[in-house]
């Protein structure tokens, strides 16, 4: 095992996959050189693999998305970077109409093995065009897979799986997690898409979460333990196709559910999870399902204002207390 930051774990996954398969290449804005990607994820890879495999582009999100689809359709494995999650609408057609439909509408004859990496940040004051979260769009887009790791281990293993997957995968990074450290094996490993992970076992209440809210949930669980409440933390890891069996098993065990996600509340990723539980696990519930999510407000560029719309440990604990009443 080695202890590393998530940013380094993601870079290691990219590097290993580029060494493994010469059809893997990276494309995006300022991936190489001094910048090394928006958050330094790809730093140094251009020196190792050259400009033909670490392709710096103009500020051209539509073309970046188009290239992801076209290069994948004709047999390569592009991994493209879109600077922020809030810029993903600029490639929404390429993802939803093109990548997501290609295998189906070609009669199952054309694969589209591309990865679209992007970075969400919610609790930072860069205003509504740089901050925000539209993860839920991809849950509502047939043919698209989307993963969002919370630890360096999951990030590396999921990205390697995503690159080898024959379908389009959106890889959601969250900027506050880049500097989080964790243990990563020395030997090669993969984390499967579509499998949740119980990050903490408990028996009274399940917190279903992913990415940044996993940390909030674990800290909340720690505190609630002192009040005698046993909290299970279920990290989705994949938001689509999400792990129905893991959710079902945990809900059957605890009967109480809080869903914490750092997106807008209405129609968010957690709304889908709540609907699934209502449809298929209602008999197991002993309390109403609660969602802990950001208010349905564009992200303000002001720390006083952002505090009021975003979520954290406090909101998760409040919700746990309410379902325990």
């Amino acid at each position: 095992m080695k202890n590393m930051k998530m940013v380094d774990a993601i870079r290691e996954a990219l590097r290993e996959e580029m060494l493994h398969d010469e059809d893997v290449f990276l494309l995006g804005e300022a991936l190489g050189g001094v910048q090394g990607g928006s958050f330094r994820v790809t730093k140094g890879l251009d020196e190792e693999f050259g400009k033909a495999r670490v392709v710096d582009t103009a500020i051209s999100e539509a073309a970046i998305g188009g290239v992801a689809v076209g290069a994948a359709a004709y047999g390569m494995r592009p991994v493209v970077e879109i600077m922020f999650g809030s810029l993903m609408p600029l490639v929404a057609d390429e993802i939803h109409n093109q990548a997501g439909t290609l295998h189906y509408v070609s009669g199952g004859k054309i694969n589209c093995p591309c990865v679209i990496r992007t970075c969400n940040w919610m609790r930072i004051i860069s205003g509504p065009h740089h901050c925000g979260n539209i993860d839920a769009l991809w849950v509502n887009s047939p043919g698209i897979k989307a993963v969002a790791p919370s630890t360096p281990y999951d990030a590396k293993g999921l990205l390697k799986t995503a690159i080898r997957d024959n379908d389009p995968v959106i890889f959601l990074e969250y900027s506050p997690l880049y500097t989080k450290t964790g243990d990563v094996p020395e030997e090669e490993y993969f984390v499967p898409i579509g499998k949740a992970d119980i990050k903490r076992e408990g028996k009274d209440v399940t917190i279903i979460c992913y990415a940044t809210t996993v940390g909030d949930a674990l800290e909340s669980a720690e505190l609630m333990e002192k009040e005698g409440v046993s909290v299970e933390v279920l990290d989705l890891r994949t938001i689509i196709p999400y792990d129905k069996e893991a959710i079902r098993a945990s809900v059957e065990k605890t009967g109480r559910v809080v869903i914490a996600y750092e997106g807008y509340k209405t129609g968010g990723v957690g709304s889908e999870i709540a609907a699934f539980i209502a449809e298929e696990c209602i008999d197991s519930l002993i309390a109403p399902v609660l969602r802990v999510a950001c208010k349905d407000v564009p992200n303000p560029s002001n720390s006083i204002l952002i505090e009021n719309i975003s979520i954290g440990k406090r909101e998760v604990i409040d919700a746990i207390r309410r379902v325990m009443e």
Partner: peptide
């Protein structure tokens, strides 16, 4: 479409095929 002939000859979002063709260009 007929990939056995390397042909993606149908894309019903006008203009989006230009980007896909550019991706094919890298291959």
């Amino acid at each position: 479409m007929d990939m056995s002939h390397f042909a993606m000859t149908g894309n019903a979002v006008v203009g989006q095929h230009w980007g896909i063709a550019t991706g094919a260009g890298f291959v």
